[in-house]
């Protein structure tokens, strides 16, 4: 029975899917190796990529692959994290202000919609030139991209509080401060985390993108350098794999933090 349960569980299914994708990759890699001149450029084997990551060969200057990616990660991700933090705080504050004051809400709402529609990532080059400094621009773009999902989702969270909860507080003659700290702010936590889950991978993407526009030591820089032939092509593939993993991980980490902060079960409406 237990074995049967394991085989039909969610985790096993995902595992099978991952295995399936790996198999398909390898099949294509074999096809590519047989037909293309430089298979490494198009689709190398998975084991080639993984092997290169752990090997001791010096890839650039004095660093091995792992060291190179490690330092690049630090540079890029640190700035992404800072931008993410700033965007989160500002987004949350705006949602709070919008809920507190109708005037602020009316002013900010159309602009918030605009931010959703504008391709901010596409403006990366110009932000880089305005700030002139690659670190600042990584932070700025990550912050802007985090800002919208966090504030939109948090605002939705505030608005989703049931009328009756607010009426109860009203019947206790509670102050506005108490209404917020005891009811509205705790209620919007799941929505807040939805915003975080959406924006964490985006902040990382933004930071990497900015890298590619200018020389330096970030992940994106290594990416473009490898593409142009400055380093072996496997650097490129390793970075692609690593950034994909980091993107997915950031999403999971947010989910984990949410589980830590809110361990209780949420009651479903239908009773």
């Amino acid at each position: 029975m237990k074995i049967k349960k394991f085989f039909s569980s969610q985790k096993f299914i995902v595992f099978v899917w991952v295995l399936g994708i790996a198999v398909i990759w390898e099949i294509f890699a074999f096809i590519v190796a047989a037909t293309k001149r430089t298979p490494v450029n198009v689709l190398p084997h998975l084991w080639q990529i993984i092997e290169a990551f752990f090997s001791d060969k010096k890839v650039s200057g004095k660093m091995t692959m792992a060291e190179l990616i490690g330092t690049a990660c630090q540079e890029t991700l640190l700035r992404a994290a800072i931008g993410f933090a700033i965007g989160t705080v500002l987004g949350y504050l705006l949602a709070l202000l919008m809920n507190l004051s109708r005037i602020v809400e009316k002013i900010a709402f159309p602009y918030l919609m605009l931010i959703q529609m504008i391709p901010i990532l596409g403006m990366a080059p110009i932000i880089l030139s305005i700030t002139g400094d690659i670190n600042t621009s990584r932070i700025v773009i990550a912050a802007i991209l985090t800002f919208y999902p966090v504030s939109a989702n948090t605002l939705a969270g505030f608005k989703a509080v049931e009328q009756e909860k607010c009426e109860l507080m009203y019947s206790y003659a509670s102050s506005r401060f108490q209404l917020y700290t005891k009811t509205l702010i705790p209620s919007c936590i799941p929505y807040f985390f939805t915003g975080l889950k959406i924006s964490a991978p985006m902040a990382i993407t933004a930071s990497i993108l900015v890298d590619t526009l200018q020389g330096g030591n970030g992940l994106g820089c290594m990416l473009s350098q490898s593409l142009k032939g400055g380093m072996t092509r496997l650097v490129f593939w390793d970075i692609v794999l690593i950034s994909a993993i980091i993107g997915i991980l950031s999403y999971q980490v947010m989910g984990l933090i949410e589980k830590l902060i809110c361990p209780y079960k949420r009651t479903k409406k239908a009773d």
Partner: peptide, 11 residues
Amino acid sequence: IVFQSAVLYDW
């Protein structure tokens, strides 16, 4: 006041 649904705080 007691409402139709209990309006308890999940957290």
